[in-house]
């Protein structure tokens, strides 16, 4: 199975007004093996989304390398995205802005199908089945769906391109609490069923725990801890991870607030 993603010592720098610079991603390295689900957690502003965008080639690298199957991921400028990188796809945070409001859902999924290799090409109907939507959805426009349904459509579109790596940039952050776990597991199932690995970004450790095989904890542009989910959950070594875990509210009926 192809689709090995290698991230080595990646730095991404944003220019701020007045010659100042912000190191959004500050020396991150990890591997994503084919068929693996890696959860990336961290607080707001720690560089998770920047890292996701960098992997898709949406942010230029200041230093380090991102390689996909041995070929470097280059920044997407004004050229077409190179063919081998089309096998990295992304699901965005906000389902209300990630679908073109003027085009039918089916047409938007077709766009993705068009870049899949002919031998592995799926169909709109099958993709809608995968994300548990009615097949009639293809003829409707995005505004006719709820947020959760739109996120399913976005997942279907991303999967239509037959990616080897699916990146979810906080795909559940703007969903209803009752839907978060459902859409997250759906995303995992759809990705694995179609032979893609998944980089699942979230600030919610409890959801990542359900979805991911391995978890990386990010703080201020660096990965502070990484390991199998169970290990990190039960025996966190980094103080920041411990604080994150302590911040998860427990539903034990005692009405406790998370420990400070």
């Amino acid at each position: 199975m192809a689709g090995h993603l290698t991230v080595r010592d990646v730095h991404v720098v944003y220019k701020l007004p007045g010659r100042r610079q912000l190191a959004a991603v500050d020396g991150v390295s990890f591997d994503l093996a084919p068929g693996e689900v890696l959860g990336l957690v961290g607080e707001s502003g720690c560089g998770k989304s920047t890292l996701a965008r960098t992997i898709c080639g949406l942010e230029p690298l200041a230093a380090g390398t991102v390689e996909f199957d041995g070929q470097p991921v280059v920044a997407l400028g004004l050229r077409k995205r190179p063919g081998h990188l089309l096998r990295i796809q992304m699901v965005f945070q906000n389902p209300y802005s990630s679908l073109n409001p003027r085009r039918r859902v089916g047409d938007q999924i077709e766009d993705a199908l068009a870049i899949a290799p002919p031998s592995e090409r799926s169909s709109v109907d099958r993709l809608l089945d995968d994300v548990e939507l009615d097949r009639g959805a293809a003829n409707l426009f995005p505004h006719q769906f709820s947020g959760g349904q739109r996120q399913r459509i976005a997942i279907a579109r991303a999967m239509g391109a037959r990616p080897d790596v699916l990146v979810g940039d906080e795909p559940i952050a703007s969903l209803d609490a009752s839907l978060q776990a459902k859409v997250a597991t759906l995303m995992r199932d759809v990705a694995l069923k179609n032979g893609a690995s998944l980089l699942f970004i979230s600030h919610d450790l409890s959801v990542v725990r359900v979805v991911a095989d391995r978890v990386a904890v990010m703080q201020a542009g660096r990965i502070v801890e990484t390991g199998p989910v169970a290990a990190v959950w039960n025996a966190p070594t980094d103080p920041y991870t411990r604080r994150l875990l302590a911040a998860i509210p427990t539903a034990d009926g005692l009405g406790r607030l998370p420990a400070a």
């Binding site: 949406l58 995205r81 796809q89 802005s97 679908l99 766009d111 993705a112 991303a158």
Partner: peptide, 21 residues
């Protein structure tokens, strides 16, 4: 906007992106 970026990730050229999205 995210749907424009999503289109580019699906391999749209800038002109296709302009016309379609």
């Amino acid at each position: 906007r995210e749907y424009v970026v999503a289109g580019r990730l699906l391999g749209f050229s800038p002109f296709t992106s302009l016309r379609r999205d």
